[in-house]
Amino acid sequence: MGKAFQFYPEAASSFAGQIDNLYFFLVALTTVMTLGIVAVALFFFVKYRRRSDDECPEEIEGNIMFEITWSVIPLVVCLGIFFWGTNIYMGMVQAPPDSVPVYVVAKQWMWKLQHPNGRSEINELHVPLGQNTRIIMASEDVLHSFYVPAFRTKMDVVPGKYTSLWFRPTKIGTYRLFCAEYCGTSHAGMNGWVHVLSEADYAAWLSGNVANESMEEAGERLFTENKCNTCHAATGNTQLGPSLNGVYGKSVTLKNGRTVTVDDAYIRESIFQPLAKVVAGFNPVMPTYETQLNEQQIMQIISYIKTLKPVDGQEGGHE
């Protein structure tokens, strides 16, 4: 893309500017400090070069004031950089509540992405300009890392759990997407493009190729196809297993007396390892769906469960 030679990557997200400011401060600090020390050392080299073989300089013991000065100043500078960076980082951790999710499954050696409306892509991501976008990631095999240099953001994809990152694109364009965590033979080939489109272009893109079903619809279909509804009521009373209406985001009590919040990670675990955290009042009878469902389908089922509203007079899970 673009020029043959550059020293500076494009900056296309809301926090790219902040990070770059700190980055360039550090570059300046490194340059000044290194050149300064080397210059002093070279000056001493010349000025105090040995002039005769039996030269014997007078002793200088050391100087406590010097030691304190060059311990405290670096310490203060270091702490300043620490607070500066941590401050920026705090803004990068938590996605704003209005973020639109994109579900990503990483596997050797491709990115599978799906938008809430069901539109899915491979190694390409289309996002509208200025929209807070949250990437929720799972891995089907090994560690990967979702990296968009132009957005200055990156996060590992860890098998067995969900990780996420968010960004707000600030510039229309096409940017590189890389896998940054070594993942085997074709690690270098596990890359793609992020297209930041204007609102209008994005709408056109979305409608240009309508998906058969949204993620929620796909989730509902999987819910029925896999006979989840035999035991788990989606809209009615508690059956063999806990009913799921309005359960998302609530906390439930487990057999061992602990409580757990029903979130993406808990639902995923309960489908893959049903016996790990059984809700109080139910028998551990559910089989694992590890071989029947893949990570992407789990994400669709989660999207579906999120939509289930509480029914009057019913409570999700057990009282």
Binding site: I19, L22, Y23, L26, L29, T34, C78, Y89, Y147, Y182
Partner: peptide, 30 residues
């Protein structure tokens, strides 16, 4: 020694980039 002082200074100071939570997000694994 002169080489050490110059190069180790760069090595040490660039460590400050990577010890930084925000900057490391971008530079990690690059």
């Amino acid at each position: 020694v002169l080489g050490f002082i110059g190069l180790f200074s760069i090595g040490g100071l660039t460590g400050l980039f990577l010890a930084n939570l925000a900057v490391d997000v971008h530079l990690h694994d690059t």
